[in-house]
Amino acid sequence: MSTNTLARRGSGRSSDKAFHLATLAAGCLILVVLFSVAAFLLVQSIPAFQAQAEEVTGGAGFWSYIWPIVIGTLIAAAIAMALATPVGIFVALFISHFAPRRLALGFGYLIDLLAAIPSVIYGAWGYIFLAPLLTTAYDWLAANLGWIPVFAGPASQTGRTMLTAGIVLAVMVLPIITALTREIFLQTPKLHEEAALAMGATQWEMIKMAVLPFARPGIISAAMLGLGRALGETMAIALVLSPGALTASLIQSGNQTIAAEIALNFPEAYNLRLSELIAAGLVLFVITLAVNMLARWVISRHKEFSGAN
């Protein structure tokens, strides 16, 4: 493909320029797409913001309608990230630094398989298999740790609760975090690792000194990718969760996430209801924006630790 250009000596500069412009155009195209999505959301959701309070679902205005499901979305994502991030990083470490080299590739492939499973299937698995399995655990939690608000009883008899949904989400997010962090761990400069080991560091100390600081920005962006999926995941939650009003307890039925609310109500929605749902999508969009700004800020604070370039 490129041998021709190599032969034509004089054309080097112009092809350089063309390539630069092509990449620039691609970048700008992304911005255009994103802004048109945002504009689409804004235009479509205006009626919901302007509507009389009584006309909006719940009868108390848009904000009191959206408020509980925003919290629900954040709870679900928080559970998922709390479970998936440490496990994901450890699994990536296992594949990159602990597993026998011969098997590591195969193990990586196994974990990637988790990403291959479509969300509808996770949803079906969650409510057919996982939820009934967890009811005993929830009963136990309600009986023994019921004094903690998040485990307040009586536990759901179907097991289709926020905690179950969070666990399913965690399983879905895990391979995303693992796949990216693994690649980054593998790229850690060999010299840094060997230097640490040569100074007598144990393997964990080597990882702490050489691998983790190098990979930190990568880990954070992997977590952000995972969070993006956790926030926007629709079908799995719609199938697993038995939604309801906002409750503190994670082991009762109740709570709802924005994406699932949209998916469950969209088919029968029209006019104002449709606007409400699209406005809910806009809110989700804004949440992602805020989360990302936060992450950027965190990364920039830790920049001095970064070993990259």
Partner: peptide, 21 residues
């Protein structure tokens, strides 16, 4: 939304949940 109860998606969902509870 004032009534707290179990729920499921779609006809097949409520029937499956009811059948198993």
């Amino acid at each position: 939304s004032d009534i707290v109860a179990e729920s499921a998606q779609g006809t097949s969902g409520v029937v499956a949940t009811t059948s198993s509870t």
